[in-house]
Design a protein around this nucleic acid. Structure first.
Lengths: 233, 233, 233, 233
DNA sequence: CATGAATGAGTGTTCATTCAT
DNA sequence: CATGAATGAACACTCATTCAT
């Protein structure tokens, strides 16, 4: 998410439409593609529908993205991988205790990704990875590895500072990912599958899961005060 | 742990030659279909490949199943919905305390479904439900509803017997489903996505999750002794 | 060009239509494909048109040939490469003098290939080889090499028997190919380009070219009596 | 052998700036187009690539040539048809004997066209003519007819002067064209098809073919001394 | 009962041509 | 003059489903 490019300054004397076009087209296509990929999956999404929803023709789409696969990669970069730089930065500058850091991380994820359409991408990958090896390896390198590394760094920090008990971080990662994954799936699949749409309050769910995690992770001395006495209403 | 296979009892009263034919073909087809649906998903599985793997021709498949969709339904019935009768039975006859019942339920699920190919079906539904509404409503009625009902009955039993605190069962259901879902996804997608194949021991994972659940569900007095002091190695 | 396969003997008691179908479909497709490839070239020929002309649907074509490229290869094998075995055989058993052999070779080529649609294939390759490398290497291995080898064997035989002067056979090959190529091009392109359709009698043209060749190739002693005093009417 | 380039004389009387612009762009485009048309054929050449190679945008190309087809026509005019005026002139002023004239004609063709990229155009027409009727008729009128007429005039001159035997000129034309065509094809296709790149020396090939032709065309009295005793090394 | 040949609608991608800037 | 963004028709190939044998 770089700021708007500095060209804008010398753009000022040019007609606005032209310069905005240059930004607008791919953006609209990426948004349409995100929606459709999340709704239907990679294979079932037709490029023509993406183009239509973005208000352009099929040919125009291929002007900006050389293939459906590259379009998908661009969607992932725009919505997920692009965020890791910022998050790693935040990690480096964070000064509080590690349980707070973990809490901050999960809630931050919810704000930026989990609560948006982007949370549909992990769901999508679950099923399409097998059928599109190139997609799988792309996602592995650009999302899973940086994400896992970030979580592992948090867990390691906790252990280094004596806040967390010694643990196998590559296992701990799963325990952190599980609630995120569940929320994403719930948002994009479960609630449309289940007829009684029990309202699952994401913040409360995350809080409860964090509390549970802390019981497993933390030394008794640093166990944070549970925000909620018990996670069930 | 699983009972002796129930087929034997049912088989005795059927004429042997005819009935075995009728079972044999569909049985092989269902097995092949389960494998392929789980591996590739519903849409990406080609009926011809199912037929080939079962050793019959494409035409023969359509002799037994009028469409790809019906084939899928049959797979689900064979592997999941067919089990609910037995489980509801067990529930009715269960005499122990409810935490044990929940534990028994999760581990039983793991033995019969979670550890088998059948656990790929929920993963599959996550993505295909949106594209095949008839599939979604079928799965909703034949799997989600009976499953949720069963879990709700357990939770309700716990509350009725004073073992569980009062709770919103339609929310509690999610907390029970979450670890099952996570294990299924881990088995069928995550471990193939993640490069460092951290060994996730399903039994230990289920135990740990159960302990966490119990902290949330149980009255302090009935809180079961945690099997593991802490869930991390 | 193998004989009809021996299965035919046990076919006798089967309904004729079925067994003939098995032969008929690919045959009709190959014929239609030959016509269209020769008329329009490889790239410009649409598989759907091939199918239509053969009286089947597009899908059926792909039932017999996995791709347009393989269809083309099959056309070439059916019409050209398949003949080389027979010709090499004839060469081995030929007992006359070499000038006669060469004459026999050129006229034989005209009867079997030159005068048929198949003579359009070399023309086609001239232009498509650059754009379809796989096609080029296929043609190189299955047509050019065997063909050139056959001609070189003839030239070598002539030299070995003292009928031909010593020569560089890889150059001599071109002199033999040139009139064949010209006839093929004339048949498939030139006569449609030229408005005055001067009738070029292929037999007379070949005879004249052969006489010219013999003046170059032969020892004065074996120079065959020119069939025509001079090649021009 | 070629004269000093005639452009210089024509250029002197034109205003420099404007005309150079007008020539420069189309000139680069025509050169790029010739290369690509010859390499890939008419249909397979993309106008965008032509523009790129000429260093201009696709839109600019269409500024100078209203369509791909007109671009091709311009290429042909620039490289082939434009030469006929000069050649007819030379014919009118030629004073030597007709066999020499024919020899001069063939070698002149080789210098100006055969040895350049332009010799790829006849090859190209062989295949594309069928698919682009407008192209075929253009080529027919602007190249084939003038070319054939020129050759016919030479043959007729030979007959009129008693140097050549009486012949059907519309057939004789083919005998003159054949070696030119073969050389052009060899240059642009055959040598890239054949694995053993036998070096074909164009001058020697033309000489040999001319000698052969003379045996057919000439009255014994005017039969020119063969330049080479026999055409094979 | 079993086969496998036949179908045809559907999809990702290319490219000549147009036109607003 | 020059650009390059936009278009949309075209095409190879796939696959669930049917049906004659």
């Amino acid at each position: 998410m770089p700021d708007s490019p500095p060209q804008d300054t010398r753009t000022s004397d040019r007609p606005i439409r032209r310069s905005r076009r240059k930004e607008a087209r791919p953006g609209e296509l990426l948004a349409a593609a995100l929606d459709l990929f999340v709704e239907k999956g990679f294979a079932a999404t037709r490029v023509e529908e993406v183009a239509q929803r973005a208000g352009v023709s099929k040919g125009t789409l291929f002007l900006y993205f050389p293939s459906k696969l590259e379009l998908f990669k661009a969607v992932v970069r725009e919505n997920i991988s692009g965020r890791f730089a910022e998050w790693n930065d935040k990690f480096d500058r964070f000064e509080g205790n590690t349980p707070d850091m973990l809490r901050y991380c999960l809630f931050g994820w919810w704000e930026r990704i989990g609560s948006t359409q982007a949370s549909g991408i992990p769901k999508l990958m679950m099923s399409e990875a097998q059928n599109f090896p190139e997609l799988a390896s792309f996602y592995q390198h650009e999302v899973m590895q940086p994400g896992n590394t970030l979580i592992k760094r948090i867990l390691q920090r906790g252990m280094d500072r004596g806040e967390f008990r010694p643990m196998d971080v590559s296992y701990g990662v799963y325990l952190v990912l599980a609630p995120m994954l569940f929320l994403a799936l719930w948002k994009h699949s479960l609630n449309t599958c289940c007829d009684d749409h029990a309202q699952l309050d994401p913040h409360r769910y995350l809080s409860a899961q964090l509390d549970m995690l802390m019981h497993g992770f933390c030394q008794p001395t640093t166990l944070p005060t549970p925000t909620l006495e018990h996670p069930l209403p």
